[in-house]
Every structure is written in C-alpha cells, then in structure tokens.
Design a protein around this nucleic acid. Sequence first.
DNA 1: TCCCAAATCTTACGAATTGTAACAAGCGGT
DNA 2: ACCGCTTGTTACAATTCGTAAGATTTGGGA
Lengths: 233, 233
Amino acid sequence: MTAPLVTILDDEPAIRTMLADALNEAGFRTMTFGRATEFEAALRSTTPDVCLVDLSLPDRDGLSLVHRLALEQGATVIIISGRAQVQDRVTGLELGADDYIIKPFDPAEVVARIRARLRRGTPSPQSGETARFNGWVAHFDRYILEDETAAETPFSHAEGEVLRLFLERPKRLISRQTMQEALGGAASESFDRAMDVRISRLRTKLREDPKNPRLIKTIYGAGYIFLGDVVWG
Amino acid sequence: MTAPLVTILDDEPAIRTMLADALNEAGFRTMTFGRATEFEAALRSTTPDVCLVDLSLPDRDGLSLVHRLALEQGATVIIISGRAQVQDRVTGLELGADDYIIKPFDPAEVVARIRARLRRGTPSPQSGETARFNGWVAHFDRYILEDETAAETPFSHAEGEVLRLFLERPKRLISRQTMQEALGGAASESFDRAMDVRISRLRTKLREDPKNPRLIKTIYGAGYIFLGDVVWG
DNA sequence: TCCCAAATCTTACGAATTGTAACAAGCGGT
DNA sequence: ACCGCTTGTTACAATTCGTAAGATTTGGGA
C-alpha cells in the first residue's frame, strides 16, 4: 500500500512548492511539472492517482488537457484555477474534471478534497456484456449464467433485468420502489408480487440457500442488497 | 435507466425550490426535505444517488448526519453551507462529504458538481462493514454475526441498527433518548417497549446471560452501555 | 430488612411484509 | 392444435417486528 501519487501541473513555482509541501506533509507522494509537455511525457511511465492541473498554462490549452486526462485516461483530475466565474467552473467540470478549486486556495482544503476523491476509489467499471461475481459469470448477451465448473444455466429476460440491476449497484440498498421502476415501470401499486417472484426465481438459479442467502439479501421493509463482488467486462 | 435521484435537505424553502427546479430542469429526479427527521424517514424506503445537505438544520446536527450518510450508508453527500471558513470545509470533507459548496451558489455549478460525482459511478460502501469484539465478528454487509468457531448467526435489520449503535459508541453511556432517535427516529412518544425488545433479541443472539450481561449492560434509569472491545474493519 | 413503585425484561401474539409453489395466460415454433 | 418456455397472478407459508401484558429487577424509603 504505497502512498497515493499526486501530480501537480502549474506554471508558478511558488504554488508548485506550496502544494507539494502540503501534500507530502499529508502523506502523499508528489511530482511537479511546470509545463504540460513535461507532464504528458511523465504520464507515459506513471499513473498518478490524482492530477492537479492549473488551467493557465503557457504551452498548452489546459481544458483540452483535462478533457483528455479525464475522459480518455480515466484519471482523477482536479482543476486549480484563477478563473472564478461560474461558467468556467461549470465547463471545467463538464469536461471531466472531478473538482474545481479557485485561487487563492488553502492547501488544507486541497488535501481534504484530494482525500475525498481517493476515498471513493478509482474509476468505476460500467456495465457491459459480462460480469463476474463470486464464482459466477453472467453473460447478458447470451442469457447464460456460468458457474465455476463452466456449467451453464440459462436465465430469462425478466431474470436478467433483475440480475443486471443488482450487478450494477452491488452492496447498496435497492428499494422496492426503485426496483419496480427499473423493471416494468408500471406502478401496479400494492399487488405486485411479480417482483418477488422474479427475485425468487433468480435466487433459485444462483443456488441460494433460502434460509441464509449469501448474495441477495432482503431488508425487511426496505428492499434488497446484492452482496457479490462484481467485476464487469 | 431512470434518472438519478437527488435529495435536497435544507430548511429554507426558497433554496429547496431553487435547487429542485434547477435539478429537474437538468433531468434529475428530486426529493426535498425541510427537516432531518423527514429525510431520515424517507431514506428507509429510497436510496438517493446524491444527497445535498445543508449543515444548518433546525432539528439535528448536520455534520453527524453527513457522517452517518457517508460512512455507514456509503451515500454520495454534497454539503451546502453558509459557513465559508476553510476549517469548516475541511472537517466537512473529512467526515465523509464528497463535495462542499458555499452559499450563495449558482445552481448551474451545483448541477455540474453533481454530474461530476455521478460520472464516477455510485460507489458501494467499503469501510465500516465489519467490527470485531470479544470473540465476535459482526458483518454488517451480510447481516451476520460470527463467533470464534466461525458459526454464523444472522441478525435482522432492526437488530443490526441497535448493534451498530453500540459498536460505534463502546464503553459510553447511550441514553434511551439518543437510542430512540438513532433508531427509527420516531418521536419519543409514549410507549416504547419496542426498543427494549430489540435489545432483548440482540442479547439473545449474543448469548448474553440475562443475570449477568457482559456486553450490553443496563443502567437503570439512564440507558445502556456496551462493554465490548471494538475494532472496526 | 422489607416493601413498593417505577423501570426494564421477556414472552406471546398479530399485523404487515416477504417467499414460493402452483396455476394460468401468452407467445413462438413445429 | 400441440408443446415448451416465459411470466404474471393467486394463495398460502414464513419471517420480521412492534404492541401488549405479565414477570422481574432496581433503588429508595419505611
């Protein structure tokens, strides 16, 4: 568990050292750059956990750099800028920045904001065609569930909807209401055991022990939680 | 693929409607609350994607609410506050908030910041899942209590709420009052043996000797004290 | 020490919620 | 039309959890 690496890209040396000092003090590793080209060169051999980027760079348009970093590389980007207009902040964030800090700033806040980003862990896999979880592989393109012995169990469309919902929000409470909406959407109000039946059938295919389900937990009066460790792809 | 749900908790109606309008305009679903108790009640049946919380609430300390939301429920929390000191922002972020926006704010920026959070995907609660104490391991993610022989005893949601409360404040008096509020939040009203029953059932699962409880001790006329040596993680 | 009222514990019961087997309707293929 | 599969509906079983009420404990006063 090495310390997270934070890169600092700013053309003012004073700001670079101020940030680097504060971050080192807080237990991070740091790398500083005065020009975008240096920074980009370094990116080829390192993957920072968080990139601090000043928008006013001499050699390159900061925003397009942010865009590339965030969208193409999936990096966590925090903009530091002297431009304080709301519109600047909005466009910065929309181009993919994770946060936008205005100069002058307090290093303590920068540290706190970096920590807040890191707490959430890095990127998030988005849903695709297959997902692995706890020995199972779900193939949504083939409507097949595969166990660790490669035995295949087909699942239906309705079951797949429920399963996908669970796999997209693992370890979070999914309320009955949101599940209703996500599925048929038709709010047939109180008389809807349909959802329960779908879940029951899915549980059977996942070979859940009715007395002690390990993957799909019921929270009485609230909803369900899917407890698998999901990896999409 | 329903629109993300954003909850707004603020005691000023003008701000609530301003935010709700902007967010609806931007394509989000919204729910607004003027008091923390209402909000907490709603949380039992819904899981918002992002929670906007104003720190200056009439009926509860906003920071502790943020802490609970962020750490225990793993929710994405954005603080909106009139307190502009750096120290306020740092503590807010350190307590688990994902962002901190200062009043007065521009709704467009709020929208942009919410989008930035959602882009990263909604995280699942990572920390605060298990706690060890006196030979037991409580798995809050699985709703299971494990003894030293690895035998598993499931516990219900209501029991888990009580257990979590104890494990968070070990060796400190927890008054009946605070326990009531921490649990259902339901008004202290008149007859509330419900809490006693929850505790009784929890004691049974922890195999407490009724004559001589070692973990959950009753302080006559005051409340309870949990005596275990708790290690979280 | 003994007694009593308040506080707390426990047990039983029931309303609400959830699980699931069985049946029926719908749909596509033969 | 028949068959097999999917999926909703219904009916009933199982679970959760609060309420009620009697049992037990506590602490103070006689």
